[in-house]
Design a protein around this nucleic acid. Structure first.
Lengths: 329, 329
DNA sequence: ATTTAACATGTAAACGTTTACGGTTAATTA
DNA sequence: TAATTAACCGTAAACGTTTACATGTTAAAT
């Protein structure tokens, strides 16, 4: 049975559509008696107003699209949680889509979000190419990039200083005496590129040249440990592994266990994201905190501001990474 | 600037609204030439059809509401991931809401989902009381409960055998010689009640009576370790802790570390959910696998079936829990 | 050459809201 | 008492789609 409509409410208490609408929206032009009648009728038949009709009329849906790689990654769970916290207080809702690091899925998800006429969009772009962003600009939807920016395009974004992340990792590992470092990286996105640059540059500054075979890129949706195995089977003997994110680091930890290598005795491991669990892994993981939750908060705040003043300038927020030393290095 | 409409497309290539609509929807009554014209125009102005208008017309939104406690809990991330996998193939999207274990927030989220006219709903109810479900029934929205059912009401649900979960835990701990077991439980929901019953019953069958002070309930959004501390500070000296879920178990692990207690030497810990990380915690956590991902899959399948044949009977799926022995016990 | 069918397109109503505008009644003022 | 005003309420248009129905055109069939 189709849900109750305003017409049903109006009919039930013998008033017009307009009056019913006014009563339910607390307009002043309704007598207290009528208002009470309407509210009672609405209550009785369990009326809930259709956001579809409202949205069609008003041009806003009170929904913000959030497009990430996958919610299974606790990093994004943290980010989304931050977004949710901010949006909730302004009665905005989240329409969640995942790209699984695939360009096609990202494009399709974007279509869905545009079709749903989301009021704004928060996304972690899969690639460092501008297509996606250009599409949003063409459709003039307010949006913020989160976690990853796109080079050479003026947009709002909230990221951490990824070059510094790579640099910090390199410095920390060098301090610990590691020169043979395997870099398990993500693919295509700008954060990955920047972290790699920061890493390589810092290594080079210390006179160490990392050859390309020490840089492994994990294909989308593949367990990082296979990239590790690949390296080991190629005869590489790293004394440390630096991973793009903690998720991968955890997979590496598990892979090393399989191969019988002890951390940190035989090999050091470090990640990025400072996920909650890294505190109690075996061993506790050295990682870099990039303020996951805060990223969500800030990106949501930017979207809200954009909705309030549509002409506003783009905002770029670059958060500072912090090294979290634990026992895996 | 407002998004392009069908009218814009029609005007741009000099056809009527109807023709434009037909062309874009691959109706047969349009000449190939006209179709091409329309598609080109739509492409050029970046037209995307409004789901709002479509939904208003058709009565379906292609959106499924998902209402969980919080996506920060990897258990629900697993569940949502399963749901997403199934829905994606049928072009349904997810509108995600969180209750944070609060009845009020759950009620508010439900209002939002009904307003958005979701085609169906998958939810993990906060309480074992029937209000929420009754509301959905009154509004005649197809729904499935996931992870937790509600006693005494005929609905569709996908859960694991929670009584058995409690029983399995009790048996496993007894086998290891633990009789002084602290139960760190969740509050109010039926799964929690059932696990407790299974636990107590099994203990009793072995002649062991657990007094109420050994059962701690963790308030919503509070770290489980405080419940542990409370117990310890009351002078309780448990030889094992059984937690409602792995999330709590991880918090307990961390709390025990703070208090300088070694696991499993001084005290054993076990959880439920078999989260990925439990494999590499220190120590690896003994837990019970309740098929998180599968729960998502099945619940999504049920919703899809309900949408196809609205008259269908309710489906109850009870998945079997499996003990995963590791080193924490 | 006329009828018929097939095809292509347009017109208008409907979905569920909100609000501008106009109308009715009762209360206030002169 | 008549005029003005205030309070309340209804009518109808609009938002962006889809489709039933009507209309017009062309080709095929007689």
């Amino acid at each position: 049975m189709a849900p109750a409509t305003l017409k049903d409410v109006a009919k039930r208490c013998g008033v017009s559509l307009a009056t019913a609408s006014r009563a339910l929206n607390n307009r002043s032009e309704v007598s207290p008696i009528t208002r009470a009648k309407v509210l009672k009728a609405a209550e009785e038949i369990g009326y809930v107003a259709s956001s579809l009709a409202k949205g069609l009329w008003s041009g806003e849906t009170k929904v913000i699209g959030v497009l990430i790689t996958t919610i299974e990654n606790p990093f994004y769970a943290n980010v989304v949680s931050g977004i949710e916290k901010v949006l909730k207080d302004h009665s905005y809702n989240i329409l969640l889509c995942s790209s699984y690091e695939e360009v096609d899925q990202e494009w399709a998800a974007l279509t869905v979000l545009l079709e749903q006429r989301v009021d704004g969009l928060i996304l972690a772009p899969v690639q460092s190419k501008p297509e996606v962003v250009e599409r949003l600009q063409k459709n003039s939807v307010p949006f913020v990039l989160v976690g990853r920016s796109i080079p050479g395009i003026d947009t709002s974004y909230v990221v951490c200083d990824d070059f510094k992340v790579g640099a910090m990792a390199a410095e920390h590992l060098l301090e610990q005496g590691h020169e043979k470092v395997l870099f398990i990286n993500s693919s295509r996105n700008y954060s990955a590129e920047q972290r790699l640059q920061g890493f390589l540059t810092t290594m080079q500054q210390h006179g160490i040249n990392i050859s390309p075979k020490w840089i492994k890129t994990v294909p989308a949706n593949q367990n990082a440990k296979y990239s590790l195995f690949e390296a080991l089977d190629q005869g590489l003997e790293p004394s440390a592994v630096f991973c793009f994110c903690d998720c991968m680091a955890l997979e590496i930890l598990s892979g090393l266990k399989e191969r019988g290598l002890k951390v940190p005795a035989d090999i050091a491991v470090m990640g990025v994201d400072n996920l909650n669990v890294t505190e109690i892994t075996d061993p506790p993981l050295t990682t870099i905190d990039i303020q996951n939750y805060e990223m969500g908060i800030r990106s949501a705040e930017i979207i809200l501001k954009k909705l309030q003043e549509p002409g506003a300038k783009h905002e770029q927020i670059i958060l500072s990474p912090k090294l979290v030393k634990r026992n895996s290095t």
